[in-house]
C-alpha cells in the first residue's frame, strides 16, 4: 500500500515538473535554433573544394533523463505496443540540444560549415535502466572555416 502511494506521488510530481521542463526546453530550443540558423550543419563526408578551409573537430553532448510519469506511461505502452511518444520527444530534445551545443562551439571558432556530422546515442542508466532511462547523445563533426 505504501509503495503504491509513493509511486502515485512520484508519478504526479513527474507529470507536473516533467511537463513544465519539457515545454521550457522546447521553447528555448526553438529560440536558439533560430539564432544559429545561418550556420549549416551538413551530413556529407565530402567538403567543398572551392577554397582552402581550416578544419577542426567540434562536438556537443547532453545527458538527459525521462521523468517518472513518462517512464510509467511508457511501461504501460509496453503492454499494448505502438508508438512510445514520451521517449520520442526525449530523444528529439536530446539530439537537438547536442547539435545546438556543437553549433555554438563551431560559431565561436568562426566556422562557415559543419561537415560530416555523426550522432552517437548511449544508454548510461546502469542499475536504473529498467525504470528510468538516462540517455546520452553526442554529436560531432568537422567545422570548416574559410582561409581568407
Amino acid at each position: 500500500m505504501e509503495q503504491l502511494i509513493a509511486t502515485l506521488v512520484f508519478v504526479t510530481l513527474g507529470f507536473f515538473f516533467g511537463r513544465r521542463a519539457e515545454k521550457k526546453h522546447y521553447t528555448s530550443l526553438i529560440e536558439r535554433e533560430e539564432k544559429l540558423n545561418a550556420l549549416p550543419v551538413i551530413a556529407s563526408r565530402i567538403p567543398p573544394y572551392d577554397a582552402p578551409y581550416e578544419q577542426s573537430l567540434v562536438s556537443g553532448s547532453v545527458v538527459i533523463a525521462n521523468d517518472y510519469f513518462k517512464a510509467f506511461v511508457a511501461g504501460l505502452r509496453n503492454l499494448f505496443g505502438g508508438k512510445v511518444r514520451s521517449y520520442e520527444t526525449l530523444l528529439d530534445r536530446a539530439r537537438r540540444e547536442a547539435v545546438l551545443r556543437m553549433k555554438v562551439q563551431a560559431k565561436k571558432q568562426g566556422a562557415d560549415y559543419v561537415f560530416n556530422v555523426k550522432f552517437e546515442t548511449s544508454n548510461i542508466s546502469g542499475q536504473y535502466s529498467k525504470k528510468l532511462p538516462i540517455v546520452e547523445v553526442h554529436a560531432y563533426g568537422t567545422a570548416l572555416k574559410k582561409i581568407a
Binding site: G14, F17, G18, E22, V62, N66, D67, Y68, I124, I134
Partner: peptide
C-alpha cells in the same frame, strides 16, 4: 531523475 530534464553532472 524523477522530474526529468538534463543531468548536468553527467554531461
Amino acid at each position: 531523475n524523477m522530474f526529468g530534464g538534463e543531468l548536468t553532472a553527467y554531461t
